[in-house]
Computed example of a mutant assay.
Amino acid sequence: MRRQFRWIVMAAALVTMCVAYSPAMAIGYLSGVLNKPAYVQTLTKLLDDAPAWTREILKRNGAYASSVRITTDIAGTSYELFGMCVSVAKCSDTSIVVMFAPNATQAWAGLNEKGVVSFLGSPSDAQQAVLKRQLYVAEPPPKVTTPFLFDVLKKPAYAQASKILVEHAGKLPRWARDVLAQNDVAYNSTPAELVDIDGVTYEVFTVCAKEYSCANTHLAVMFAPNGTQAWGVLVHEGVMSYLGAPSGAQAAVMRGELDPDDRKWGVPAGK
């Protein structure tokens, strides 16, 4: 009988807890503390002049995802922080972190809109640092840097492909042969252009000879993936020739790199 009474008391206590506290409040989400008038009043005032999307977090079923409440100490004062990602637009482009003073007497916020960070409520420098640290700001895509011809020719596969290209090219101007053989020669170079031909990505490099002030002396070199093969288009003193028997599509790409005016250079000896 005593054991049965104990279970009845425990069950009653659990029912009371479930009524008094929503699941959100029990695990520390913003929707839980918004059951308290002080939090609602402070947050509503903070968001009065904020972008419209931020007011989604005031709605019971607003279009946002919330992180669990965390606390942080600034100069001996404990603050509550809630981070939300608002999915009215793109969720990762619109996020907000709200900071409450003890008992929600004041609030501040950090906003992220498409990578631009701003603040609400005039937070101190220390508060700004905390808010910014908690904000989700997508990292910009890494800058893709492409190598120059002299960079890839340091790799054995590219050097071998270039050597084969020279060996089968017949008579070449000295400067072009020196460029492809990595000899000491002065030339200007552009970084690689990545081009797609029939689903295969090729690297195309263009160079010109300083000896001729880069006038009518240009070379385009195309490498297959991983430098397994090379082709070229050479212009020397106005005369154009093909190296390595490029296909029509490959030759067209290289001619385009050498000649933006798309003059007609003839048909390569390749396929």
Rank of each mutant, 00 (worst) to 15 (best):
V179G: 06
H236Y: 12
D151H: 10
W53I: 06
M240C: 12
F119P: 03
A209R: 02
P225H: 12
K210W: 13
T201I: 11
N112H: 01
A129M: 04
T201V: 14
L120P: 01
L131K: 01
W53Q: 04
A50F: 10
S241E: 08
P141R: 11
G244S: 08
V15I: 13
P246Y: 04
D73C: 03
V40Q: 13
L165I: 07
F119G: 02
C91G: 15
W53Y: 12
L165P: 03
L120M: 09
S31T: 10
N35I: 01
L165A: 02
K163A: 11
V195F: 07
Y187Q: 07
H168A: 13
G238I: 02
A20M: 10
C91R: 13
G110A: 10
V195S: 14
G28S: 07
S189D: 06
V267T: 11
P147M: 11
T42V: 01
A89R: 08
L149F: 04
S22W: 06
T206R: 11
P37L: 02
A109C: 11
I8D: 08
A126S: 14
M17C: 14
V179A: 13
E203K: 04
E203P: 00
E211F: 05
A24M: 04
N112F: 02
S95R: 01
V267R: 10
Q106A: 15
V117I: 14
I74R: 03
Q134E: 14
A251W: 14
S22K: 14
Q229I: 03
T145P: 05
Q128G: 01
V137W: 00
A224R: 00
P141E: 06
T201P: 00
P268I: 02
N188G: 08
G266N: 12
R177S: 13
K264A: 09
A107I: 00
A159N: 03
A161I: 10
D73E: 15
V185P: 05
S213K: 13
D48G: 07
L46C: 04
Y242S: 05
S66M: 11
K271E: 12
A220M: 09
A11G: 09
A104L: 09
V88W: 09
M1E: 04
V200M: 06
M222H: 08
L58G: 03
P142K: 12
V40T: 08
L243G: 05
K90P: 14
K90L: 13
G238R: 01
K271R: 10
T72I: 10
V207W: 00
L46W: 06
D73H: 03
D196H: 02
V253Y: 11
V86A: 06
L180M: 14
L30D: 01
P147Q: 10
Q229S: 13
A230G: 07
Q182V: 13
P51Q: 02
A11E: 05
K271L: 12
Y64H: 11
I70G: 15
L120W: 04
Q182D: 12
V116D: 15
A12M: 09
G270S: 11
F223S: 01
G170K: 03
Y212L: 10
S66D: 07
R255K: 15
T105Q: 04
S213Q: 12
A181R: 12
M25L: 14
E139D: 11
L194E: 04
E211I: 13
